[in-house]
Structures are given as C-alpha cells and as structure tokens.
C-alpha cells in the first residue's frame, strides 16, 4: 500500500454526520481517518463497543463501507469466513 499522509488523505468521506458518539470522540475521529487512509477499501467487523454505537441503530447507519456486527468472541472470526468465501 502506498504511503498516505495528512496532506494526501482523500477528501472523500466514509462517515456521515449525525452519529451517536460523545462530542469530541477520538474513536470517531480515528475511524474517519482510518477509512480515508484505506480509501474505503474495507469491510468492517464490529464487536459490542462504542464502534457499534457509531455504526448506528437499524435501519440507518452512519458508515458507508460494508460492516458486520458480531458477538464479542467472534469478531476475529469474520475474516477467516470471508477470506476463502
């Protein structure tokens, strides 16, 4: 993957305004930057956490990349299922 820095970060947004995280949440900011750095080339797996809350409540989500919410212990097991499939 080529180097990405603050200047070359894409202008495209992968988060939408109006999520339920606390004002000033570092997770929200970090997630925004991570998705920009990946330029949206990501499928996200989320355990029960603030990230779940960021992703929102059914049927609306604040995130414009595909995502699967899972129970705690199965977060890391999404990848072995997706990769071969």
């Amino acid at each position: 993957m080529s180097q990405v820095n603050a200047v070359s970060l894409t202008e495209k947004e992968y988060l939408l305004p109006g999520n339920r995280l606390c004002p000033g949440c570092a997770l929200s900011l970090a997630y925004r930057h991570i998705l920009k750095a990946l330029d949206g080339r990501a499928i996200i797996t989320v355990p029960a956490s603030c990230l779940t809350v960021l992703h929102g409540m059914y049927p609306v989500t604040s995130v414009t990349v595909p995502c699967v919410n899972t129970p705690f212990a199965s977060v890391q097991h999404q990848l072995p299922g997706w990769w071969p499939a």
């Binding site: 305004p17 109006g18 999520n19 339920r20 992703h55 049927p59 609306v60 989500t61 414009t64």
Partner: peptide
C-alpha cells in the same frame, strides 16, 4: 437487521 447509510442516524446532533 440490514442497515443502509444515512445522515443524521442519531438525529439532529
């Protein structure tokens, strides 16, 4: 539970 992207998921924050 299949959600689609939308602005203002948490309301007018």
């Amino acid at each position: 539970g299949e959600s689609s992207p939308g602005i203002g998921e948490g309301g007018k924050t």
